[in-house]
Nucleic acid binder design. Structure first.
Length: 424
RNA sequence: GGAGAGGUGGCUGAGUGGUCGAAAGCGGCGGUUUGCUAAACCGUUGUACGGGUGAAAACCUGUACCGAGGGUUCGAAUCCCUCCCUCUCCGCCA
């Protein structure tokens, strides 16, 4: 959520930054300003009346104590009270409208973000390694997985529907190994604290990180309870500290968490439906940081490096991409994507997305810290995948496939696989 | 799921219709004292949203906030209703 005061004081600049996203979000600012103006006007009126009421009520109390007749005073105050009730309702309605208007406006991109329309305008920042050369035609993961008997898409459909994965045997073991290895890596070597949160999320938390109210149709929701399936661990982990105030010395805080991620992928039907590139449920280890505002951009670079380390240790070729204004997510001010090379499909796959949301989520979730001058300020919140498992799995299978269809496993996973070094 | 108890400021905890933003204690901050530490003593101590003054730091002022939302009343932390959460017991269950 953007700061209403910043909008009030700098409307043109905010509009200009929003316009770079190319979605017309800047158009909402005029309405926000009008609502804000009305709200403040009504607020002044009602507060003046309340002041009057407080004074007279006090007089009534005192007069009564002296045994005087107060029926005249009381009669007059009834009208004031009714007027207050009416104005209060008006203010509440304006506030609700203003709140909603602000909740559906995306974050303003940071000035270092390239302006662009879509993914085509993203800027490649660096590459690591290079695509593995093949002496044979590399196969896509769905062929490898089915042949090895570790991925079973038809049976996943039988249970849930299309867009779900069933791992079995060493395939299931590999998924579990990756989860454990990633959590160990980030907690032991990168200083993150492990969190295992609920996978069901209430509405307030979904609003806190920005999934709601705008993206309701992308979320799985329970029928009988106001609960949603976690679309990413970002949601529970960020909301851990909702309505809290950190002491300055408690920052930065690093958390990592494994959760499955549930996404309806509404509107994405038909796109990339083959295999496990885009599915309704996938596993992910997520990194989340709460930082002071001054350090959040350094922390973003470090977070990207932490995610890159995953691919480096696994020996997977990747590139880092800085998203342009038009391709960034709703809550983000700056995002790097990490894309791993999938030789079976001759393309890069997004396995991580690391974002600095600045105070956008902190304002929604009301997460602050007490600064050295005693003032409460909003923290900056960052989140990044470290990494998404399904696509990492794809890259592993396709990169380390052998001519006979077997797959060797990179060294870091051997112990996590109980000594198994290849799938065949 | 059933029965009961409870949710007050950073913490503990008083407050059952009016002068309560809220006693007291602890903690925090500032000061006195001190070679240092501790203790003692004095003072101070919330947040949000408006309005005003100021270049700003800040200051002045109003309103709201005692789990959340409604209601009664001239006036609600206090009375009523609904909901949420915590604790205890019972039931059920991995």
């Amino acid at each position: 959520m953007l700061d209403i005061r910043a909008i009030r004081e700098n409307a043109a600049a905010v509009q200009q930054r929003l316009a770079t996203r190319g979605r017309g979000d800047e158009a909402a600012i005029a309405g926000v300003l009008a609502l804000d103006q009305q709200r403040r006007q009504r607020l002044q009126e009602v507060e003046q009346l309340k002041s009057q009421r407080n004074q007279v009520s006090k007089q009534i109390g005192q007069a009564k104590a002296r045994g005087e007749d107060v029926s005249g005073l009381m009669a007059g105050m009834k009208e004031v009270s009714d007027r207050i009730a009416a104005l209060d309702a008006e203010v509440a309605q304006l506030e609700a409208q203003l709140e909603h208007a602000l909740l559906v406006i995306p974050n303003t991109p940071h000035e270092s973000v390239p302006v662009g329309r879509d993914a085509g305008d993203n800027v490649e920042v660096r590459r690591w390694g290079e695509p593995r050369p093949f002496s044979f035609e590399p196969k896509p993961h769905w062929e490898l997985g089915e042949r090895l008997g570790i991925l079973d898409f038809p049976r996943a459909s039988k249970i849930a529907g299309s867009g779900f994965i069933l791992y079995r045997g060493l395939g299931a073991r590999l998924e579990r190994a990756l989860i454990n290895w990633l959590l160990d890596l980030h907690t032991r070597e990168h200083g993150y604290t492990e969190v295992f949160p609920p996978f069901l999320i209430n509405r307030a938390a979904m609003i806190g990180t920005g999934q709601l109210p705008k993206f309701e149709e992308d979320m799985y929701r329970l029928r009988d309870d106001e609960l949603y399936l976690a679309p990413t661990a970002e949601v529970p982990v960020c909301n851990m500290h909702r309505d809290e105030i950190f002491r300055a010395e408690e920052l930065p805080r690093y958390y990592c968490a494994y959760t499955p991620c549930f996404r309806r992928e509404a509107g994405a039907a038909g796109k990339e439906t083959r295999g496990m590139i885009r599915v309704h449920q996938f596993d992910k280890v997520e990194l989340v940081k709460f930082t002071r505002p001054e350090t959040s951009y350094e922390e973003l670079e470090k977070m990207v490096a932490n995610a890159e380390r995953v691919l480096q240790l696994l020996g997977l070729h990747y590139r880092v991409v800085l998203l342009c204004t038009g391709d960034m997510g709703f809550a983000s001010a700056k995002t790097y994507d990490i894309e791993v090379w999938a030789p079976g499909q001759q393309r890069y796959l997004e396995v991580s997305s690391c974002s600095n949301c600045e105070d956008f989520q902190a304002r929604r979730a009301n997460i602050r810290f007490k600064d050295s001058d005693g003032k409460n300020r909003y923290v900056h919140m960052l989140n990044g995948s470290g990494t998404a498992l399904a696509r990492l799995y794809v890259a592993l299978l396709e990169t380390y496939q052998q001519p006979d269809g077997s797959v060797t496993l990179p060294a870091p996973l051997h112990s996590y696989m109980g000594g198994v070094t290849e799938l065949r």
